[in-house]
């Protein structure tokens, strides 16, 4: 075992990379849940985004087009969920599960023939001056565009929810859909848009894994990150900035765990690989004491009878 082989600067830099898919998926789901919808299909939308992005990036040679395709793929899949839960008024838990099962199958089907290919590499951002700073430059300012896109989306969601009229309406729909309906807001339409946004975010998060983080395509490669993203929203008490904090926390656990594996710590690999999931459970237990911040209409079916 040689812990000195772990470079703290690289560790922090890779933490930001490891956290990004989680961040994207979780902030999307946060918006969905703020609108009062519980979409358990994050894992399915992520993996679909992962393969859509991968396939388009490989075929066009342009990773940015890949990311766009991933967002579109995730959104199209989430549209299925939206139709089921908002139009056909199906149970959200069951529909979300179905979405995950379906997405895993769909991605495996599309992904045939893409195994073992390297995608075109993503351009790294290089800001003159900032990127050359001694320690901070490596940690903060020399990542790919997607890392900053994730941060921008978090900031945007925070601003929208807190300071804009649209955010207020979204929250109203999530807190009390009957009242929002009585005020004349289109509950179903607003929720549909939120679900599509969540799907696009999850898709991009998936593409980040297949295009940048791994970068490769293997079946089921998201390995539960979508589910951790769901847990993260609970951890964050439905607050965007805490999603950021949580994503970095989990990213950190993943990175440290991988580094420990590489350093050859005396703990078997399998037990180290369990740690992100176990820590998620632990965090859920700690955070579940406070349920007050959950949107009041979360998971409830809305049917406009009048």
């Amino acid at each position: 075992m040689d812990l000195s082989s772990i470079n703290p600067i690289l560790l922090l830099a890779s933490l930001m990379v490891a956290a990004t898919p989680l961040l994207l998926a979780a902030v999307g789901e946060l918006v969905v849940e703020k609108a009062g919808v519980l979409n358990l299909g994050v894992e399915g939308m992520m993996i679909t985004g992962a393969i859509c992005g991968f396939a388009i990036a490989v075929n066009t040679g342009n990773p940015l087009l890949g990311v766009l395709a991933a967002a579109a793929g995730g959104a199209v899949l989430s549209l299925l969920f939206a139709l089921l839960t908002q139009v056909a008024l199906a149970n959200q838990v069951a529909s979300g599960l179905g979405l995950t099962l379906f997405g895993l199958g769909l991605s495996a089907l599309i992904g045939q023939g893409y195994q073992g290919i390297r995608p075109p590499s993503f351009p790294r951002l290089n800001i003159p001056g900032l990127s050359d700073m001694p320690v901070l430059g490596r940690i903060l300012f020399s990542h790919d565009l997607m890392v900053y896109l994730g941060l921008t989306i978090v900031a945007g969601v925070w601003f929208m929810l807190k300071y804009t009229r649209a955010g207020l309406i979204l929250r109203a729909v999530g807190e009390n859909h009957e009242a929002a309906h009585a005020l004349g807001y289109k509950v179903v339409r607003i929720r549909m848009m939120a679900i599509l946004f969540g799907g696009a975010c999850a898709g991009m998060g998936g593409a980040y894994i297949s295009l940048i983080r791994v970068p490769q395509w293997t079946e089921g490669m998201t390995a539960g990150i979508g589910w951790i993203a769901l847990a993260l929203v609970v951890f964050a008490s439905w607050k965007p900035w805490r999603v950021l904090l949580g994503a970095y926390l989990f990213g950190g656990v993943t990175v440290i765990q991988l580094n420990l594996q590489a350093a050859g710590v005396a703990i078997p690999v399998e037990y180290l690989a369990m740690s992100p999931y176990l820590i998620t459970i632990l965090v859920l237990v700690i955070m579940s004491a406070d349920k007050s911040s959950a949107p009041a209409s979360l998971g409830r079916i809305f049917h406009a009878s009048r």
Partner: peptide, 10 residues
């Protein structure tokens, strides 16, 4: 492909 069956079940 096996995945088609999985999708079918979904």
């Amino acid at each position: 492909p096996a995945a088609a069956i999985q999708m079918f079940q979904g």
